[in-house]
Design a protein around this nucleic acid. Structure first.
Lengths: 266, 266
DNA sequence: AAGTGGTCTAGACCACTTT
DNA sequence: AAGTGGTCTAGACCACTTC
């Protein structure tokens, strides 16, 4: 069995069972990484491989320490970072769980549109269209697939208090989202990312957004019931799963009369 | 001398020299907080009081451990959190420094407008107006002062590559920003928050923003050189200094043709 | 060489949850 | 009572910076 190596106790790069550690394989110029980073990488591999699925309990710190032959403190620091990255959730007395989109808490991370006054509430989702098509070059580039590859296209309208507020177009890699149909989307209760995670084994763990102000086009006028040329908030999102793999492109238009996009600068 | 107390080794609430700890004074129902949280609160008090100013070196972990009579590990955990909160910056081999706005790195935290293509660059600032006036009720409520209290009002235009892009109105509590004039603002090189921090002892440590899409009004048309009714990104910000005290209200209009507001959802 | 933050260990005890 | 994460300590050693 190949053992993990602590920092600088050796000249060779850190090695982990079956695969290189976070620092890289280090063929040319060996890079090192702290033990806890190597442990973190190992745990992430188990998350990615589906050994521990969203919502499930992962092994205890003591057990992981025994498994990886390091101290509990080192495992702890690894899990500390995974927790900060929102990949796992600690619960005192119970254990550490794989993060899931089936919690209200997580929704706010991915839907930043808030009512100007009052409490945030769940939107009503209306799936307008689901079809499979060949990926335009522009979409393919973002999703890191080949132009012409199969993609799933979704058009959705979201209502807050019966007011049409969000119109979005979503592109997903067809290879991952095989059996995705309008029916499954429509009948599914809860957040779309919950469905992606549960049914397609693809949890969204982070996203990058670009916001612009734009004028309502014809489709927006029709569906969002705004005047032609009305200002709308355009939100273009690329969402990523484990390994920073892009798996969703989403272009949304938000009506921001009565709602706003909330952001904390920390 | 009153000593700090570790968790639950006593029935009385944790006490710190001269003041209650993070958990609160606990007169009615004593609340507890971990030792490292108490240390963190103590360090924050020193930051707030100006004992250690932005850019300066704070005492080493060993020294702080001696001062507070706790282990270095406990001080470390306190500073870990302060570092995560962006209140201090660690530098291996050198020490721990109080965070400052005089670093390019910090700019990106507070200016999220990026060019759609190419590298971000520093804007040219044009101060259009600086005046002192009595606070409108609406502004006073946000800044937690009394309506009619003195406030400094600033109107500023920012250019990227000679293109007018950001028009903003800023309100500041007059009591804090006494000698603030158009001249000082105009002659100051670097970010406005750097000036606030250096000249007025008021570092902005976090901010909360509300974004909406709006139509250009007359003033925006004139100054931002956009067409009447053109869509603009409205960004309303409240910035806070130590102790979560609001000290700035900023209402900005961003031109988002060629630029976008960037946000990471993590 | 000395001082700083960064990593790692081992052990003790606490708070919380479940059995 | 047993198991989990959370806190705290003491000590060793490493990496980096400065003198």
């Amino acid at each position: 069995m190949v053992k993990l190596r602590a920092m600088s106790q050796t000249v060779s790069p850190p090695v982990v069972p079956g695969q290189a550690a976070a620092g890289g394989t280090g063929t040319a110029s060996p890079t090192f990484s702290p033990l806890y980073q190597q442990i973190k990488a190992l745990i992430m591999q188990s998350l990615q491989s589906g050994e521990w699925k969203p919502g499930e309990l992962i092994p205890s710190e003591v057990e992981l320490a025994y498994r990886y032959k390091v101290s509990q403190g080192t495992v702890r620091k690894a899990i500390d970072e995974l927790s900060a990255d929102n990949l796992v959730v600690r619960r005192q007395g119970k254990g550490t769980f794989v993060a899931t989109h089936h919690e209200a808490r997580v929704q706010f991370r991915f839907l930043r549109l808030m009512p100007d006054a009052g409490e945030a509430r769940q939107p009503d989702n209306h799936i307008l269209e689901v079809k499979r098509l060949r990926s335009p070059a522009e979409v393919a580039r973002v999703l890191d697939i080949k132009a012409g590859d199969s993609v799933v296209f979704i058009r959705r309208l979201q209502y807050f208090d019966a007011v049409p507020t969000i119109l979005e177009e979503i592109w997903l890699p067809g290879a991952i989202f095989k059996g995705l149909t309008a029916e499954r989307l429509a009948e599914y209760k809860g957040p779309m990312y919950g469905l992606f995670e549960t049914e397609f084994g693809t949890p969204m763990i982070r996203a990058s957004e670009r916001l612009k102000a734009v004028s309502a086009d014809e489709l927006a006028v029709e569906l969002l019931k705004v005047q032609s040329g009305a200002p709308l908030l355009s939100v273009e999102r690329v969402a990523y799963t484990y390994g920073d793999r892009p798996v969703e492109l989403r272009r949304a238009l938000y009506v921001t009369t009565g709602h706003h996009y909330h952001n904390e600068l920390i």
